[in-house]
Design a protein around this nucleic acid. Structure first.
Length: 793
DNA sequence: AGCACGCCGACT
DNA sequence: GTCGGCGTGCTC
């Protein structure tokens, strides 16, 4: 028996199967989708069995060393989906397989030294005393590698390659009575032991060691003694790490659907019942009740003993969403989002894999949940860019969802108040079925939106980042004890450091970006490579001392706000204050309880957040992202403003929104005022048509990087020439041009964009180009291809 | 990607 | 003369 294996090495030359013989003892368990450990050159690595066969064209085969799984970790559907993913995103097969499993299942590789002989030098011997077997890392740190190498030659030391799973199943320890003694016949001075025995005799069977320690007020030492003496027997049972252990979820029931909602859900349920694929685009303003439609669709799916995947953008939405899902479906729900630890994610995955849950609510990667009977896939906030993975495999969850739904024969629901132009265009064309929710559920009017021209403010002498109107409105809310949300665009854009005399902006020495100022350490940091340096006292160019930071970071807004209104309490939410696990939720909870008047934050507060007392939303600078080199800039701005505005007045109290901008005449800002998606869509479609961008054209992006500018540009030019000669006249090849971020980590970046309508051979051609140019050699230009990029840099 | 094998300069 | 630099090529 022979197994074809894809091994865990993401490299061009290894991106194919390798054949191994299967020892008789392993034959019953090897099958497609099972992980194995195999010898590969001098080392051992993990791999996936792709195929079982009986012949191989290779003569000398090595045997499989070990089988990792009793059951396949990837079922037939996911195995074939990985093939599709490999072709679609031009990634390595191993990457496509790996991305479908939780990070915990990625193998870790170790090199260990084993001592075989006592006659070795003292300093090596002492190393073995501290650690045996001795890890490569430690040996290297102690500078002993050379000596060890010599000892290996003398056969006094041996080196082994070890493959380990990075995460293990969590086990809980239990003890029970063995019956060899009773509490009556142990020595009187063993008070604790007696107490423990009595307790166990009164109860029945096993008890968790942790509980026992609590009850008997004792330590594991006592319990260990009792185990050693044979009074107690220990056992282990597998345990799930439950991230929601301390929380109870109130059981909730269906809401009665409004006529509007009924009209929308009917065609979906129809498709569910018919086991048919159909992609729906559910378009409804914030508060129109999309979630209830999701919940009731899932309910229908569960009634048929089928399963559901629900994708949400990222952690921000999840606490409230999770609550709603757990409330409705109880422990049938697994949750997968970035806030969980690696171990927790692994456990949630195992619940799905074992068929213990039927619903998964999660971020992008949950699209690969190993369900066998999918009944519906839902993507909420479908326009969110976080559904596109930016590193290999560069997949879009929406594409994977549709592909899986075809294999399962089930509908996909894409939901959004501001659909991506691509999706809306497809819906208009009839590729997707458009479902509109026109009314807000509680008949609540949309908040009043006021646009403030900050140029006007400047002309009238207001140089602060708050317009006079905004300040007045903030004061009003404070008086009325209502709450305010202040929104600031992404952190990377803010707080650069500039010399006021010569205008020099502090730049990263390794990347073509300006450094960001971080107040708490008086330092400046690069967001691309992590470079960090103290803010200099004098300008490195002109030695002037007039160095200061510009832009508006959240920290700076907070300070300004404090200067203007020292009596106001603010909670700041940005990457700095929410990096710790659970802090996101904690801050939101605190704000919900009314512990602060103002919530100040970046992008991450734009979603979810639904507190009745928020009556004012301020957008400090609506246009910062309008000027990014990205054809989706207007779309993103409109989506963001619409979404942020939706945060105000979600309940009885009417809400107001103030948008500050330097370009009030821009259509995406004007139209966000009325939240008129349809108009925005028409207008933006016209722009896209003239500029020849999606949805009128598909785009692929090739990026070349190298330390030498000319080399990067040169190769980029070669590739552009190949493309020009091979593609049809209707396709447009832009470039080579320097990437918007011209240099990252000392490597210059050049790119070439392909815009096309119909190029059936393009994937093949790109694959060829990728093969031809992906040399891994020392001085090689590295190449990256994104088949449908979301970020143009 | 690792790792071994192999062929040329500065040290005991 | 050897140690060690990293170029080249292979991994079932």
């Amino acid at each position: 028996m022979i197994a074809s294996v894809i091994v865990d090495v993401p490299a061009k030359q290894i991106d194919r199967t390798f054949d191994y013989t299967v020892p008789a003892s392993l034959q019953p368990v090897v099958q497609r989708g099972v992980r194995v450990i195999v010898p590969f050159g001098p080392r051992k690595i993990q791999g996936f069995i792709l195929e079982i066969k009986h012949e191989s064209s290779v003569k000398k085969l090595k045997p499989i060393e070990e089988v990792v799984d009793i059951e396949p970790v990837l079922n037939e559907e996911l195995m074939s989906l990985s093939e599709w993913l490999t072709e679609q995103t031009l990634c390595y097969r191993i990457s496509a397989l790996q991305v479908m499993l939780p990070a915990a299942m990625k193998a870790k590789y170790h090199k260990l030294f084993f001592q075989l002989d006592h006659d070795i030098p003292d300093h090596i011997q002492s190393l073995f005393h501290t650690e045996s077997p001795l890890s490569w890392k430690k040996a290297d740190e102690s500078g002993a590698l050379k000596d060890l190498q010599e000892l290996i030659k003398q056969r006094k030391v041996e080196m082994k390659y070890v493959v380990r799973q990075s995460m293990n199943v969590k086990k809980k320890r239990f003890v029970e009575l063995t019956g060899t003694v009773t509490s009556g016949n142990i020595p009187g001075n063993a008070r604790k032991q007696k107490q423990i025995l009595e307790h166990l005799e009164a109860g029945e069977g096993k008890i968790a060691v942790a509980d026992l320690k609590e009850i008997a007020q004792t330590t594991s030492a006592v319990i260990k003694t009792m185990i050693d003496k044979g009074y107690l027997k220990e056992s282990f049972s597998e345990q799930y790490r439950d991230p929601f252990a301390e929380r109870t979820f109130e059981k909730t029931d269906h809401f009665t659907l409004t006529p509007d909602q009924k009209k929308a859900i009917t065609p979906i349920v129809e498709k569910v019942n018919q086991y048919e694929q159909q992609t729906f685009l559910l378009h409804g303003v914030t508060g129109s009740g999309k979630t209830e439609i999701y919940l009731q669709t899932i309910d229908q799916v569960l009634k048929q003993d089928r399963q559901a995947i629900m994708l949400v953008p990222e952690i921000s939405l999840t606490p409230q969403m999770v609550q709603r899902f757990k409330g409705r479906f109880g422990d049938q729900v697994a949750v997968m989002h970035s806030g969980l630890s690696v171990g927790e994610k692994y456990d949630e995955w195992r619940k799905i894999h074992r068929g213990e849950v039927n619903v998964v609510v999660g971020a992008r990667s949950a699209i690969f949940a190993p369900f066998k009977r999918l009944g519906v896939i839902i993507i909420d906030e479908e326009h969110e860019t976080s559904y596109k993975q930016e590193d290999s495999p560069r997949y879009h969850a929406r594409d994977v969802a549709i592909e899986r739904s075809m294999r399962h024969g089930c509908p996909v629901i894409l939901g959004s108040a501001t659909p991506s132009l691509e999706s809306f265009a497809r819906a208009k064309k009839g590729n997707y079925q458009l479902l509109e929710l026109e009314y807000r559920m509680n008949q609540q009017d949309l908040p009043e939106v006021k646009i403030i021209d900050m140029r006007e403010e400047l002309r009238e002498g207001n140089r602060s980042m708050f317009s006079r109107d905004l300040l007045v409105e903030i004061e009003k809310r404070i008086e009325r004890k209502e709450q305010i949300v202040l929104f600031l665009n992404r952190r990377g854009y803010s707080s650069f450091i500039m010399c006021r005399d010569c205008g020099t902006v502090m730049q990263c020495p390794h990347c073509e970006v300006s450094l960001t100022y971080h107040r708490y350490k008086e330092s400046m940091k690069c967001h691309y490579c992590g470079f960090e340096e103290q803010v200099p006292n004098t300008c490195p160019e002109c030695e002037s001392e007039h160095i200061r930071y510009f832009g508006t970071g959240t920290q700076k807004v907070e300070e300004e706000l404090f200067k203007l209104m020292p009596h106001v309490k603010t909670i700041r939410m940005d990457v700095d204050t929410t990096s710790k696990k659970g802090s996101h939720e904690k801050l939101l909870d605190a704000f919900g309880r009314g512990e602060a008047d103002i919530l100040l934050g970046t992008q991450m507060i734009a979603k979810g957040l639904d507190f009745p007392n928020i009556t004012l939303v301020g957008v400090l600078s609506a246009d910062t992202m309008l000027h990014l080199p990205d054809f989706r800039a207007s779309e993103k701005t409109f989506q963001l403003l619409t979404q942020v505005s939706g945060r105000a007045g979600r309940h009885e109290k009417p809400g107001e929104v103030i948008i500050q901008t330097y370009t009030p005449e821009h259509f995406s800002i004007e139209l966000a005022k009325t939240q008129n998606y349809e108009w925005f869509y028409q207008k933006e479609m016209m722009m896209r048509k003239t500029a020849q961008y999606p949805p009128f054209y598909f785009i692929s992006l090739i990026t070349l990087s190298h330390e030498n500018v000319n080399k990067a540009a040169g190769v980029c030019n070669e590739i552009a020439e190949i493309l020009k000669s091979r593609l049809s006249d209707q396709s447009i090849i832009l470039g080579p041009v320097a990437s918007p971020i011209a240099r990252i980590q000392d490597k210059y970046r050049y790119q070439c964009m392909i815009k096309y309508k119909h190029e059936p051979e393009l994937k093949l051609l790109l694959k060829k180009i990728l093969d031809q140019y992906s040399d891994t050699g020392k001085d090689a230009v590295s190449i990256n291809i994104d088949v449908q990029p979301y970020i143009m840099m």
